[in-house]
Design a protein around this nucleic acid. Structure first.
Lengths: 144, 144
DNA sequence: TCTAAAACCTAAAGCAGCTTTAGGTTCAAG
DNA sequence: CTTGAACCTAAAGCTGCTTTAGGTTTTAGA
């Protein structure tokens, strides 16, 4: 068995997109912004992906689903390629992202409480008396 | 006292922006997209806002802080102007938005759990053995 | 073998909700 | 009267794709 075997192109763009559960255009977009390397092409100019490309795309999609920005995904990909490096950077990137997620949650919970209160206060009458509209119109919390 | 009194222009764009705690450019942007009406101008062409404009801007900012889209803010503003209408539409817009916020929270909580698990599993060694990277590289949950 | 449809290609614009940049003009204080 | 802060417009930039327009290639069936 020679080394060529593992390099044989195996997937069209439609196939990798389906396996990664994303759109074909998204795959092209990732190539365009340098997240995915340029694959080989057929004589007619169509992209041919290897299993390695697919793995990389799956990594990207999974990272995106977890809410990492494309820029962070780029950093994670670079780190993933340095197998012998220490994983502390990966750890701190993930921890930082976790904290961002937690902050978003707490912000949304504040909104949730506020919206619930507004809905609860609504007296279902005319807009002139609507507490929701009054709540929106009222001056913000930090006004002296 | 004549009716003119309440129409006297009172604020520059910098003043309304400061009171609404937003940027000057944001105020101009709202005018551009039809969220705020065009104010009078000085001879030199600078915008002059009335108290009414300011109220409207405060309404917009407060709605935005609660996460309503600009399009929804437009609808709320239209409703707010129809004082004698029933407020049921306002109620349903708010309730629908509350549900969206709750969905976002539950999505973020899923991410939070996942990220926490990944960070906890990290063994702080080499990237080759990093469970976080492995977690990102692994095939998604719905693969047979 | 031919043909029609499905899948692919590029380049550019569009979405939300602003922010930033560039290059001026007006206003208010000293 | 000058200077600097605040204002003006128009257009581009941001994120992460999606959509549109207008073609070319591949593939499955007759």
């Amino acid at each position: 068995m020679n080394a060529k075997m593992k390099d044989q192109p195996q997937f069209s763009i439609g196939e990798v997109a389906a396996r990664a559960e994303c759109q074909v255009q998204t795959v092209r977009y990732y190539e365009q912004v340098g997240i995915l390397p340029q694959p080989a092409r057929t004589e007619g100019g169509q992209r041919q992906y290897t299993a390695e490309h697919l793995d990389r795309l799956l990594f990207v999609r999974r990272s995106r689903e977890l809410g990492f920005s494309l820029d962070t995904v780029r950093r994670l990909l670079r780190l993933a390629d340095k197998q012998e490096d220490d994983c502390s950077t990966v750890d701190s990137i993930t921890t930082a992202h976790l904290r961002e997620v937690q902050q978003k949650i707490s912000h949304l919970r504040t909104l949730e409480r506020e919206l619930k209160r507004m809905v609860a206060e609504c007296n279902h009458g005319k807009i002139a008396d609507c507490r929701i509209i009054q709540g929106l119109a009222r001056i913000g919390p930090s006004k002296p």
